[in-house]
Amino acid sequence: MKRFILFAAAMGIGVTAATAEPVSPMQVVFTDGAVEESLTGVAGDPVAGRDVFANRKLGNCLACHMNEDWSEQSFHGEVGPPMDGVAERWSTAELRGIVANSKEMFPNTIMPSFYRNAGYTRTLKKFEGKTILSAQQVEDVVAYLQTLTYE
Score class of each variant (00 low, 15 high):
137 Q>V: 02
131 T>N: 00
114 F>A: 03
59 G>H: 02
8 A>L: 01
146 Q>M: 07
32 D>R: 06
137 Q>E: 15
6 L>D: 03
147 T>K: 04
2 K>G: 10
107 P>C: 06
107 P>S: 01
93 A>K: 06
134 S>A: 07
121 T>E: 04
133 L>I: 11
24 S>H: 06
31 T>E: 15
129 G>M: 09
18 A>I: 00
80 G>F: 09
123 T>D: 08
16 T>F: 11
75 F>H: 10
12 G>S: 14
119 G>C: 04
150 Y>D: 14
55 N>C: 08
56 R>L: 12
5 I>W: 02
53 F>V: 10
22 P>S: 00
101 N>A: 06
122 R>Q: 09
60 N>H: 03
8 A>Q: 01
54 A>P: 05
70 W>N: 13
51 D>T: 14
100 A>P: 01
39 L>F: 03
109 T>A: 00
120 Y>N: 02
6 L>E: 15
23 V>A: 11
9 A>F: 05
30 F>W: 12
30 F>Y: 02
80 G>V: 01
147 T>R: 13
17 A>G: 12
6 L>M: 10
91 S>Q: 09
145 L>W: 12
130 K>S: 05
124 L>S: 12
100 A>M: 00
23 V>Q: 10
110 I>D: 08
3 R>C: 09
100 A>S: 14
128 E>A: 07
109 T>P: 05
149 T>F: 10
101 N>C: 02
139 E>Q: 05
71 S>Y: 13
18 A>N: 10
74 S>Y: 12
44 G>K: 04
92 T>Y: 05
54 A>S: 08
15 V>I: 06
90 W>F: 15
82 P>R: 10
121 T>P: 02
105 M>L: 04
115 Y>P: 08
76 H>K: 10
38 S>K: 02
68 E>V: 07
63 A>Q: 06
47 V>L: 13
65 H>G: 04
74 S>M: 15
11 M>T: 09
69 D>S: 15
37 E>W: 09
27 Q>I: 00
134 S>F: 00
68 E>C: 04
97 G>H: 01
10 A>G: 06
45 D>W: 15
123 T>N: 06
112 P>E: 06
13 I>K: 07
77 G>E: 08
133 L>R: 05
43 A>L: 11
116 R>W: 01
133 L>V: 10
